[in-house]
Amino acid sequence: MSHSGIIFPGIIACFAVSLAATVIIPNSQLGSLSPEIKEEDGRFVDAYPVADLSLAARGKEVYVSQGCQSCHTQVVRGNDTADVERGWGVRKTVPRDYLFENPPLVGAGRLGPDLANVGSTAWRNEPADDPYKPVKRDAAWQMLHLYHPTAVSKLSNMPSYSFLFQKHRIAGSGDKDALTNLPKTLLPEDGFEIVPSADVKALVAYLLSLDRSHSLKEAPAVAASAPAHK
């Protein structure tokens, strides 16, 4: 057989080695993971992670559809790293965290902060004297952030997702979900209100569901679950 006569079998062999090493063997290791179940005295205490069938699941679809993963990762890297120090998580993210995510939203880059634990109350360690440090990042804060990012984070480079909101004429006592925390400069004209769409409500539910601070055997929490010194 001439040297060149082995192109096809040779390339198929290289492909098979690549497939085995990169997919088949890792899948046999990572594909058999299951939720970590905690029991005390034979009684079930809790399990992590759990499949999400709620509004947040719809919110994940909105997150993907808007391309949020192009700018936000959902992976805290390493335990002794700036990620943990910055308050993006209390421990590194591991494959078990993504057990029910097909696919997991690891993200393409960090043009915005990591969101692996954005729903955790301990997320981010802004300095105490930061004038933009929110009391808490609840649904109202997330809504305003999506509607007009620089209203809550002056240096934010995130585009406004105002197209996910509608301006409605106020009827009766108004919509119970209308934004009530708008700064004066963003208030609509008298008689109108800004109402979040179903998509943005689902998206906020998804963001608030993101909390991977549950301690795991292979990744015990290394940072306090409450905000650190700054």
């Binding site: 192109i7 096809f8 390339i11 198929i12 290289c14 492909f15 497939l19 990169t22 997919v23 890792p26 899948n27 990572l30 594909g31 993971l33 494959p95 993504y98 057990l99 029910f100 995510e101 097909n102 696919p103 997991p104 690891v106």
Partner: peptide, 29 residues
């Protein structure tokens, strides 16, 4: 070789993901 690899790769990769033959982080791999 390039034509062959691309065909094999597009077929295998998309089949594995679309059929959920691999799950979780392996999908990103």
């Amino acid at each position: 070789a390039a034509f062959l690899w691309l065909g094999l790769s597009l077929l295998t990769g998309n089949l594995l993901i679309a059929t959920n033959s691999v799950t979780g982080v392996v999908q990103q791999i």
